[in-house]
Structure formats: structure tokens, C-alpha cells
């Protein structure tokens, strides 16, 4: 049990998917201007990343490895993720319209979110078993959401701050992320 706890702490704080592993930066900077979109995107990522982590794990160990097709991993995983996102979108639209309304617009963006593919590949590279894969994928999604929410709450204050015109927009957002990442660097050593 404590092993899973360590994995969770490490995935959320120590090796945060965005702030330490540099994954998922495009949506992270793209949709973090407002708190509610940040939360929506975060939730959609948690959902898809956990599902994708499980399915790609099965694809790797049940299809690619037995057939000796490991070299096709990238292409297989991206196709799995793209179709999964489509299916989730259709399913939510039909069955849970409320959730679809909240997450719908973020789903298409997730296919090209490298955090999803990145986590799927990390699961395989680290040779996680199925339980570790589920826990790690979920925790990484939570880490992504945490970083999104922190950044959104900072960016919501930008309009009232006096930012030099040169740095307005993306540059100041980037430097803010840098400071956030610096804060997260403080978690180094928390988990061995």
C-alpha cells in the first residue's frame, strides 16, 4: 500500500507531469486563462489519461509484445488514444449529457496532448504492472490538474497586475510557470 502512496506523491508533486517532466505544455498554457476551463480540462485529462493508460498497457502486453511488433508502439498508441477520445466523446454525448457539456469541448484537444501519450509510454518504459499503471496514470492526471488550477488562479490576476507591455501575454505566463516549477523543485527528495 505505501508503495502506491509513494507513487502517487511522486507523480503529483515530485515529478509533476507538467512542471518537472515537461509534458502537456500546449494545453497547459493554452487553456489556463480561466479557472473553470482549467478545471474542465484537468478533469477531462484525468479521465482520458487513466483510460488510455489501461488500454495501451493491454495493447502493449497482449498484442505488440507477443507479435514482436514493439517498434510499432508509437503508432499503435496514438491510434488507440485518438479512437478512445472519439468513443468517449460519443458515449458522453449520448449517455451523460451533463458531463459532456462540461468536458466536451476539451476532448478533441486531448488527442494531441502529449501528456496522454507520454504517460502511456512511461508506463511501459518503467515496466509498471497493471495496478501501477492505473495508479500512476491517474495520479499524473491529478498532477496535471493541480498545475493547471495553480496556474489559472495566478493568471486570473494578470488583468489587475501592471505587466510591462513587452511581457504581456505568453512571456509572463511562461515566467510564472517557471516560478511555479521552481516551487515544485522544493519537493525534490520527498520521495526516494
Amino acid at each position: 500500500m505505501s508503495e502506491y502512496l509513494l507513487l502517487i506523491v511522486s507523480a503529483i508533486l515530485v515529478s509533476n507531469i507538467v512542471l518537472a517532466r515537461y509534458l502537456g505544455n500546449c494545453p497547459f498554457l493554452g487553456v489556463s486563462q480561466k479557472m473553470d476551463t482549467a478545471v474542465g480540462m484537468g478533469m477531462a485529462v484525468i479521465f482520458v489519461v487513466t483510460l488510455a493508460g489501461m488500454i495501451t498497457w493491454v495493447v502493449q502486453y497482449a498484442i505488440l509484445n507477443p507479435l514482436g511488433l514493439e517498434y510499432l508502439r508509437t503508432i499503435a498508441f496514438i491510434l488507440v488514444i485518438a479512437s478512445l477520445v472519439q468513443l468517449v466523446e460519443m458515449f458522453l454525448q449520448k449517455s451523460i449529457p451533463a458531463l459532456y457539456k462540461a468536458l466536451g469541448i476539451f476532448l478533441p484537444l486531448i488527442t494531441t496532448n502529449c501528456a496522454v501519450l507520454g504517460i502511456a509510454i512511461i508506463n511501459i518504459q518503467e515496466e509498471y504492472d497493471f495496478m501501477h499503471t492505473v495508479v500512476f496514470s491517474f495520479a499524473s492526471g491529478v498532477g496535471f490538474t493541480l498545475a493547471m488550477v495553480l496556474l489559472a488562479s495566478l493568471r486570473e490576476r494578470f488583468p489587475t497586475a501592471r505587466i510591462p507591455t513587452t511581457f504581456a501575454g505568453m512571456p509572463i505566463a511562461m515566467i510564472t510557470v517557471g516560478l511555479l516549477a521552481l516551487a515544485f523543485l522544493g519537493f525534490t527528495g520527498l520521495v526516494d
Binding site: 512542471l19 518537472a20 507591455t165 511562461m174 517557471g178
Partner: peptide, 16 residues
């Protein structure tokens, strides 16, 4: 990691 973000931020400012 923090250096990467800050450095890119300054370069984007420079581009502006």
C-alpha cells in the same frame, strides 16, 4: 525545468 520556462519567457519577450 524552471530555467526552461523562464528562459523561453524572456526569449518570447525579446521577440515582442
Amino acid at each position: 525545468a524552471p530555467g526552461a520556462f523562464v528562459c523561453l519567457g524572456f526569449l518570447l519577450g525579446l521577440m515582442n
